[in-house]
Amino acid sequence: MLSANSLPDEAMDHVIGYKTSQEAWDCQERFAYVYVIRVNQLEFHTITENDYIIAALSDLSPEFEVIKTIILAKDIPISLKDFRAQLLGTERYIESRVTNLSYSISAMCVQNEI
């Protein structure tokens, strides 16, 4: 089990739900991304939240194209908090699809071996 004493407060939001340190370690890219944004906030404190979101969207991998389209099509800019929630939700959805696909492929391989 992860210990609350082992991570800074700002990192705790990112590991809630992970049962092992390995699972938390596997999501380390999220930590790095958050810290890069914080550094950028310090360097470019005059940039708006919307500018950050647009910059972040441009760096996302193709798996996030749908969420990019949805966020860019909004009439009202999304807050950083909502943006983060959308990205994490999309990431979890992508991960579950990959897991389900892996299980399906494994099942097909097993069926062909019988």
Rank of each mutant, 00 (worst) to 15 (best):
H14V: 09
D9Q: 09
A85S: 12
A85C: 03
R38H: 10
S104T: 13
S106P: 00
L72R: 15
T99W: 10
I105D: 13
N5K: 06
I70Q: 10
L88M: 11
Y52N: 02
D26E: 14
K81F: 05
S58E: 15
T90P: 01
Y35S: 03
M108S: 14
I76C: 08
D75A: 08
E113K: 13
I114A: 04
P8T: 05
W25G: 02
V36H: 05
A32M: 07
H14F: 13
T48Q: 10
N112K: 15
Y103R: 15
L42A: 09
L42T: 04
V36P: 00
R84W: 01
K74L: 14
T46A: 14
F31P: 00
D75W: 02
L87D: 03
S96W: 05
L2V: 14
E10P: 01
G17N: 06
F31E: 02
L2C: 08
A55W: 12
E63F: 09
G89S: 12
M1I: 13
M12H: 12
H14E: 12
V15Y: 14
Y52Q: 07
I47C: 12
A85G: 02
A24V: 10
D59H: 11
K74H: 06
L42H: 08
N112G: 14
M108L: 14
T69W: 04
V34P: 00
C27E: 14
Y18F: 15
A24C: 13
N5W: 04
Y52W: 07
I54Y: 03
S61T: 12
I70N: 06
E113V: 07
S3Q: 12
V66F: 11
V36W: 09
E113D: 08
V98K: 13
A73L: 03
T20F: 05
L101P: 00
Q41P: 00
Y33T: 13
A4R: 10
N40T: 01
I53W: 00
T90M: 11
I16A: 13
